[in-house]
Amino acid sequence: MELLVMITIDGRQCALRTVAVKSVMEIEAITSVPMAPRHVLGLSTRRSQTLTVIDCMSAAGLPAQTAPIGKRAAVVSHEGHTYALLVDKIEDVENTLGEVQPVSAAIGENWSRLAEGMVETNQGPALILSIASLVVGPEQMPRAA
């Protein structure tokens, strides 16, 4: 069994591993960064710490978030940097009901790039997302063969 933070992105039930999530915050302000990739909305702060705000919709190859101020984000660390992963909704923490399985269904190229696998939870099946892939974004990700 593993604990997951249940999130929603564009109506799709997804999850992040709780070991990677430091906290959850509401985005109050974002300072844009010139020439940043389109999935990087800019910088925000939490308790005097600078966070790079990642638009998970855009990272999944979907249209960018509109009006992100006031939305919730999962705060995570990756390779020594701290990120705020902007999602549509952060639900709750759930236990997995089985082992993580490879994604067997056709879920789309961009979602496949973000997925570490699928798992069953009390809320139904969830796609476990790779934080590294969300941070990298669609432009820098290698094309599937």
Rank of each mutant, 00 (worst) to 15 (best):
S32G: 09
V33H: 15
P34Q: 14
P34F: 08
M35A: 14
P37V: 11
R38D: 15
R38N: 14
H39N: 07
V40W: 13
V40F: 11
V40N: 06
V40T: 11
V40E: 10
L41N: 05
L41K: 09
G42W: 05
G42Q: 03
G42V: 06
G42C: 05
S44V: 08
S44N: 07
S44K: 05
T45S: 12
T45R: 12
R46C: 14
R46A: 15
R46L: 15
R47W: 08
S48T: 14
Q49Y: 09
Q49S: 13
T52Y: 02
V53R: 05
V53A: 08
I54E: 03
I54M: 02
D55W: 03
D55M: 09
C56H: 13
C56N: 03
M57W: 02
A59M: 07
A59D: 10
A59Y: 07
A59H: 04
A60T: 03
A60C: 01
G61T: 09
G61L: 09
L62K: 10
P63D: 08
A64P: 12
A64E: 07
Q65A: 11
A67Q: 12
A67F: 04
P68Y: 00
P68M: 00
P68H: 00
G70I: 05
K71Y: 03
K71C: 11
R72M: 05
R72F: 06
A73G: 05
A73D: 01
A74P: 04
A74W: 01
A74H: 04
V76I: 13
V76R: 01
